[in-house]
Computed example of a mutant assay.
Amino acid sequence: MQEAEKKDLEARRRESAITNMYYNRYLVVRYATALLLFINLYWFLMLFTEGAPLYLFILPLSLLIGAALTMWEMALMNTRDQREAKMATIFYKMIIVVNVLLVLLSVLGHYTTFFPLLKQSLSSLLAVLILQLCGILLSIGILSRLRQIRCKSDKQYKRIQTYLASIT
């Protein structure tokens, strides 16, 4: 390899490393979205196999579509010039709204309608409530992370800035 080729290769490696550092700012968001995608897919399939009325499919189907669009948006973030993650913010706010709605309906005794595999019991109700509250807390955490990224106050952004300062 000649000297010019080595410099070009090193410049491409640096640019790739910087792009990956920017992309990894959304790592937690991507994993949480994938988790929620599969949870909602399971919920959709559970309703389908139990022969639930069609109107019950609206919630898991809308969350599946939201998760898919969020994953698509996260895939587009593999660039150095990132924009705000609007779809992810909408999706996680939608998760909070749906979970609050499910908590309210569960407390009123309607959780077996939305989760037909569960029997009407106190332990089933507690399990549903705990899972919904975990979903709310996860969404609040992800929204906080997205806000940090948008405000450029996350640790990864500071590491990127330190790295950029060290190579220039």
Score class of each variant (00 low, 15 high):
1 M>R: 08
1 M>T: 12
2 Q>M: 06
2 Q>S: 15
3 E>V: 12
5 E>M: 02
5 E>Y: 00
6 K>R: 13
7 K>A: 14
7 K>T: 11
12 R>S: 11
13 R>S: 02
13 R>K: 09
15 E>R: 11
16 S>V: 12
18 I>Q: 04
19 T>N: 06
19 T>F: 00
19 T>R: 10
30 R>E: 13
34 A>N: 13
34 A>G: 13
36 L>C: 12
37 L>D: 03
37 L>F: 03
40 N>D: 04
44 F>S: 08
46 M>H: 09
48 F>N: 14
50 E>A: 06
50 E>K: 03
52 A>V: 05
54 L>E: 05
54 L>S: 07
55 Y>G: 03
56 L>I: 05
60 P>T: 01
60 P>S: 04
61 L>C: 12
62 S>Q: 09
66 G>Q: 09
66 G>M: 11
67 A>Y: 06
68 A>T: 11
68 A>S: 14
69 L>D: 07
69 L>W: 02
70 T>H: 09
71 M>C: 10
74 M>V: 06
77 M>A: 15
77 M>H: 12
83 R>P: 00
84 E>M: 04
85 A>Q: 13
87 M>C: 13
87 M>K: 14
88 A>G: 14
89 T>I: 11
92 Y>N: 05
92 Y>I: 02
93 K>R: 11
97 V>C: 10
98 V>C: 13
103 V>F: 02
107 V>C: 12
108 L>P: 00
109 G>R: 02
111 Y>I: 11
113 T>F: 04
114 F>N: 02
119 K>L: 08
120 Q>A: 12
120 Q>C: 08
121 S>A: 12
122 L>Y: 08
122 L>S: 15
124 S>R: 00
125 L>P: 07
126 L>C: 08
126 L>Y: 05
127 A>N: 10
127 A>H: 03
129 L>P: 02
135 G>R: 02
138 L>H: 01
139 S>M: 05
143 L>M: 02
143 L>K: 01
144 S>P: 00
148 Q>W: 05
148 Q>C: 10
148 Q>P: 06
149 I>W: 01
149 I>T: 04
151 C>M: 14
151 C>N: 15
154 D>V: 10
154 D>P: 12
154 D>Y: 08
155 K>S: 11
157 Y>E: 09
159 R>L: 09
160 I>N: 13
161 Q>C: 03
162 T>D: 15
164 L>S: 07
165 A>T: 10
166 S>E: 13
167 I>R: 11
167 I>T: 14
